[in-house]
Every structure is written in C-alpha cells, then in structure tokens.
Amino acid sequence: MSVELNHTIVHVKDRWAAARDVSEVLGLPEATAYGPFAELKLDNAASLDFMDTEGEIRGQHYAFLVSEEEFDSILGRLRDDGRQWWADPFKRKPQEINNGDGGRGLYWEGPDGHWLEIITRPYGSGS
C-alpha cells in the first residue's frame, strides 16, 4: 500500500463561507456536509475539511497542482473577482505569476488568513 494524503482539517470562522470561497476560485463542486465539516473534495480523492473554530486561527499553506488550462481559469476568476495574487509567498511581486520548474504558479490569501497556491508543475520537477 502506498501512503497518500486523504484529508486535512482547515480551521476557519465560517466553514460554509470558507469552503464556498475556495471551491469557487478553484472551480470545484460545492462542499458537502460530513459531520462537523464542510468537506471539499479534490480530484485526487483527498479533501479539505473546513471546521468552524473559535479563537485565533493560524494561517496554513495549501498548494494545489493544476493543469495549464485550470491555471488560466483560476487566474481569470481571481481577476474577475478583483482579488490580489502574488508570484511569491512574501508578497513582493503583486499581480504577477512565477515560472518555477518550467511551469506557472501564484499565491493568494484565502479565508481566515490561509495562504493558497496553484502550480502547474510539482516543485523539483522542472527544467
């Protein structure tokens, strides 16, 4: 048996609003209820399980590997929504994309301070 990530819990103030925000930007189907979670299924059978949390939320980083076409669609949705994105995780290159490993990538702030990233090539795979 291989080891695969099955799910991760994403702590947020409003699980349904956060799941909706991420699903809309990524172009995924709406989240579904699973116990105390708003479960957002990804195409590789892993899921983001959004959970309401009281108190301080520490932002986490979530990176998504997408196709070139999906990248264009996601970037278009960020633009259409008037959202900010960066080529780097330090916010030094606003409204730019990076070309890491011969692909494309960008970062944006998601719900409750979580840092979201899309890449078209896995790190370490490029030319």
Rank of each mutant, 00 (worst) to 15 (best):
D88K: 00
M1Q: 12
Q84N: 08
S127Q: 09
L48T: 01
M51H: 09
R104T: 05
E69W: 01
H114C: 11
A31S: 10
L106H: 04
S23M: 05
G103L: 00
L28R: 11
G105Y: 02
I97H: 00
P111E: 05
V66S: 05
E70C: 01
Y34R: 03
E30N: 14
G76F: 07
L116D: 08
W16E: 12
I9K: 07
N44I: 08
I118P: 06
E56S: 05
G35K: 06
A87M: 00
E4F: 15
I74A: 02
W86M: 01
G27D: 02
V66Y: 00
S67R: 00
E117K: 03
P122H: 09
I57K: 00
S73N: 09
Y34L: 15
D101I: 06
P89S: 03
R121D: 03
R83K: 12
I74Y: 09
E68Q: 12
E39H: 07
G103S: 02
W85K: 01
L26C: 11
H11Q: 05
V22M: 04
E70S: 03
E70F: 00
D14G: 10
R15N: 11
G110I: 02
A31T: 15
E68K: 03
R77I: 07
R79A: 04
L116V: 12
A38M: 04
S67Y: 00
P89H: 03
Q95K: 06
G59T: 02
K93Y: 11
T53I: 07
M51S: 08
L116K: 08
D72T: 05
S67N: 01
E54A: 14
H7E: 13
V3E: 12
K13F: 07
G103K: 01
G82H: 01
R77T: 14
D101V: 11
S23I: 05
I74H: 02
Y34I: 06
F64A: 03
I97T: 08
A45H: 09
D101L: 06
G124M: 13
F37Y: 11
I57T: 07
Q60E: 13
E96G: 07
G100H: 07
T120P: 00
A33H: 13
A33D: 15
E56L: 07
E69Q: 11
T32G: 15
H61N: 15
L116Q: 02
H61W: 01
H7F: 11
K91H: 15
A19G: 06
D72H: 08
A46K: 12
D81L: 04
P29C: 06
G55N: 02
R83H: 10
V66M: 00
A33Q: 15
L106Y: 09
R104K: 12
S2Q: 09
Q95P: 06
F37Q: 04
D49S: 15
F37E: 08
V22T: 13
G126A: 09
I118Y: 01
N44Q: 04
N98K: 07
L48V: 02
R92P: 14
K91P: 11
M51K: 10
R104F: 15
I57G: 10
W85N: 07
D101K: 03
E39Q: 10
A46Y: 03
L5Y: 04
D49I: 09
G113F: 08
W115D: 13
R20S: 14
D49N: 11
D52E: 04
W108R: 00
E56R: 10
T120F: 01
T8H: 05
A45D: 14
A31L: 12
Y34C: 09
Y62C: 13
W86T: 06
W86G: 00
D81F: 10
